[in-house]
Amino acid sequence: MNPLRMTPKTMRVAGHRGHSEGAPENTYAAFRKAREYAGPGVTCETDLRITSDGELVLIHDETVDRTTDGYGLVRNMTYAEIETLSAGRWFREEFAEERVPRLVDALQFAREQGIIYQLELKTYGQDDVFFPRLKALIEELGCADLLQFSSFDFVQLRALKKAIPDVPTVGLSHSRLIDPAAIALEANVDAINLEIHHFPSGEARQLHDGGIATFLHVPPPSKLKTLKTYGVDIEADVIEWIHDGQLDQLISNDVSQVLRLKDMANA
């Protein structure tokens, strides 16, 4: 049985890089705000990279330039160098003390807070180093239940599922797929995150018919406001998709938006 398949009432609520609409992405502040909105069981999508000294860290970009007050490639920096940087000042001064989290610390935080992480893999070509470190950490902490893995690289996901079979995997795609269920089954993923503009094409139903969960990212209200003035109501479509049972997890930068849409669909 697929652990990621849900119903309209049990659909998973997720924050993109945490509640990144109201706090600096991929920080404890963003994860904490997601938890405050959605309660225990909230999923926080985040991004996983590896430092030069082998530490697994949560940061989206290849460099630290955009989301910290430092400069350089993550893979060329030690964690001792990265942990001195502010990961929040760029967002607002009140978050100046936020730091780039190590995965090991973030997992302990997740256990305390009741958070699930969807870790998007951002490290390629180092599976022989990356996978054993990740597997050892999960076994040491006994935290497979706190994780999902996601990636645009379906080949990597298939290999990772073989190495760490207890953690569900999520394929990410911006393309419209001819047979998404067949691709999901070949890659041995549990879910596929579909592109919202292609969603009406019926891929969700194809996935569900194949036993695969359907995830969707919805832009936050701040990005939808202009479209709505022209009569394009994307949120109304999402509510209908939830109500019809087509979604197993909905994610946004704004966790409060996801909760609102879920509640409206189930009213």
Rank of each mutant, 00 (worst) to 15 (best):
Q148C: 09
Y124H: 06
Q126F: 14
S151G: 02
G142E: 04
D153N: 14
F131I: 15
S150M: 10
G125Y: 13
K135I: 05
L121K: 00
K122C: 10
L137S: 09
R133D: 06
E139H: 12
A144R: 12
E140I: 05
S150A: 14
E140K: 07
Q118L: 06
Q118E: 15
L137N: 06
Q118F: 03
Y117T: 10
I115N: 05
P132D: 10
Q118H: 05
D145W: 11
G114A: 03
K135S: 12
D145N: 14
Q118V: 06
F149M: 03
L141E: 15
S150P: 04
L146Y: 09
F131A: 02
Q118W: 07
G142W: 11
T123F: 00
K135R: 15
S150K: 12
I138H: 01
D128V: 15
F149N: 09
Q148V: 06
D153T: 13
D127Q: 14
A144E: 11
Y124R: 13
F130E: 01
Q126M: 10
Q148T: 14
E139M: 06
Q113R: 14
T123R: 01
L146D: 00
L141A: 04
A144M: 04
G114S: 07
V129C: 04
L146N: 01
D127M: 10
E140P: 04
G125L: 08
L146F: 07
L119Y: 06
C143D: 12
C143W: 00
Q126W: 15
Q113E: 15
S150F: 07
L121Y: 01
R133Q: 09
K135V: 07
G125R: 02
Q113F: 10
L134F: 03
C143N: 04
G114F: 15
L146W: 06
F149Q: 06
L137W: 14
L137R: 08
D128A: 14
P132E: 14
Q118P: 01
Q118M: 10
F149A: 03
F152V: 07
D145E: 13
F152A: 00
F131K: 03
Y117W: 14
L141V: 06
A136P: 00
K135G: 07
S150G: 06
L147C: 02
E140T: 13
P132W: 13
L146M: 10
K122I: 05
F131E: 01
L146G: 01
E140L: 08
Y124G: 01
C143G: 04
K135L: 04
I115S: 05
Q148Y: 15
L121A: 03
Q126A: 10
L147H: 02
I115G: 03
A136D: 13
S151R: 01
E140A: 11
E139K: 09
L134V: 11
T123K: 00
Q126T: 05
P132S: 11
L119T: 01
R133I: 15
L121F: 07
T123A: 03
T123D: 05
R133K: 15
E140R: 08
L147M: 02
G142F: 11
L119A: 02
D127F: 05
Q118D: 15
Q148E: 12
A136Q: 14
D128Y: 12
D145K: 12
